[in-house]
Write a protein that binds this DNA or RNA. Sequence first.
DNA 1: CTGAAAGCGCTTACAG
DNA 2: CTGAAAGCGCTTACAG
Lengths: 343, 343
Amino acid sequence: MIDRKITIKDIAREAGVSPALVSFSLNNATSFNGERKYKVNEQTAKRIMEVAARYNYKPNNAARTLRSKHNQAIGVVLSDISNKFFSEIARQIEERAYSYNYTVMFGSTDEKVEKLAKVVDSFISKGIDGLVLVPCEGCEAIVKEIVERGIPLVLLDRVVDVEGVSSVSLNNKDAARIAVEKLFAGGFKRIEMVSYDMTLSNITEREKGYVQTMQEVGLGEYVKVHKVDYSNIDSSANKLFASLDFGEVDALFFATNSLALLGMRALNQLGLTTPKDVGVVVFDGCDAFELYPSTITYIKQPIEQFATVAIDMVINLVEKGGQENRSMVIDAELVEGDSSTKR
Amino acid sequence: MIDRKITIKDIAREAGVSPALVSFSLNNATSFNGERKYKVNEQTAKRIMEVAARYNYKPNNAARTLRSKHNQAIGVVLSDISNKFFSEIARQIEERAYSYNYTVMFGSTDEKVEKLAKVVDSFISKGIDGLVLVPCEGCEAIVKEIVERGIPLVLLDRVVDVEGVSSVSLNNKDAARIAVEKLFAGGFKRIEMVSYDMTLSNITEREKGYVQTMQEVGLGEYVKVHKVDYSNIDSSANKLFASLDFGEVDALFFATNSLALLGMRALNQLGLTTPKDVGVVVFDGCDAFELYPSTITYIKQPIEQFATVAIDMVINLVEKGGQENRSMVIDAELVEGDSSTKR
DNA sequence: CTGAAAGCGCTTACAG
DNA sequence: CTGAAAGCGCTTACAG
């Protein structure tokens, strides 16, 4: 920690008041909700503020935290911050948290429980007030423990079956429905899904939505979910795409952006294009698709909302105390391109 | 901050020693350099450690920081964490810092001095021990102030003309040389550069390298640096690419990945391909290029090295104290694709 | 409306 | 090798 010589005592001496009064004034000035718990004479307050400003006084965060038991810091545990989806969330979270005068710490799990445990532990040791967490497979026990310890927690992107957790996630089932309906309306029949062999809620919900919608529109006989091995993505995906018969398959619905990227690359290498040879709907747009000859239809996830809602919820839990267990499900939006209409 | 009931006193009582001894034992156990400043009887130490483990004791970070004046936290100020280049750096920095038991806080500047100032201020208020900073245009005064306040600082990606700053950056001039030489060797003559109208050191060095190399290989007459307006990227870029005569221009050397993406998209829309219609070398590979019909030649930046060196340097400054002003320049590498050889 | 005092949980010289 | 004590810079009841 960087040495900062001037303290609340210096300000107090200079302003001719007690340190306590300086503390009151300063904290009232920066109180968010406007409720001034301790009244300070306006003249006095003004003098104090002025002295503080003149000396460029900055309160010592460690002292404040030690005494008050809160740190104005949130830990954010993501799957992988170098993944575009998460880095954009990170960006929005950062913005939102700063606007409340909170700082954030980021960590990545790589979908591994052990890493998740390590990061969470480290964040708690650092004294975060609350946690925003993208859960991975098999982390139920950890989530449960966090909740039981009374640590404010909001799950992001995926939900987990634990009593009393708050969460923010996409309406995944509905998103899949929209995608399938769009392809169906675009004239495709044999619509197959490319997914991961994972039990994460976002993935399984998308699969359910796909299957259900296919049945509802009368394409039940064509239902087929291809599962790419997450622990061995590249080779597993290559094998899959090499094995698909694009004389038969009409369209592909990709469960994630990363799968879509792999798939589009494979189609590219096979000399196939969309929508001529195969219809395509993916999750999330990305730069890559802009280099593609035709525009791609995609499900747009409300990244900014994810971030703002998650931060608002966790800060609410921190400041109001108590887990109030809200599950927020946000609707997706379809952005239409050429790839979902048969030509 | 989350309540943690058990303190050093509890451990001391349970182990039948003084709180001080507990502190000594614990800190020696986790000391990095292995030098044990305070000797504790092995038996005693063992007993203490065991009690601490049994109670799952976690030291209170705020108290420790308040007393010891260091926080084991680094602030990392990037241009934009949702940009792939920076999010990958962020990821590596996170990894490296955690391995030293440091935590990191990230902030984005969007290339604006005011945002940079705000983020730096906020980080200092939060009690970071040191700063890794990607400077933006016009931030010299702030950098100078940070240095003068004795805050350990390492500049990343770009350098700034301030006395006594440490930095880690690419050998940009040489990288540009490699790119131009590759295009020249590939049979291209009229090689033009697409850059930003910015005075950032990485940009200007790349331009210098381009100009110089063009002259050296005898293509001085073709030197041309197109500048895209950073504050108005999209329309400025569109205007530029629309105005280029690809009957004349042989090859394009893009100063950044984002410019390359814009350029490739524009070529795409104009129905032009590389290397048939125009040779191309860019900075950094990315997913997008994998969807491109031909492979792209790119300058690979040593992202992992950037991160590890920056963190090592800043932690070194923090722990050894004093600015020792090292400038580390790392060489780039060329990854050859089809786009740099005339066909 | 304001001040004196205690104390948050550690670390760190200082004795012994 | 170990203990007693001070104190980091705040906040927060408690008096007045």
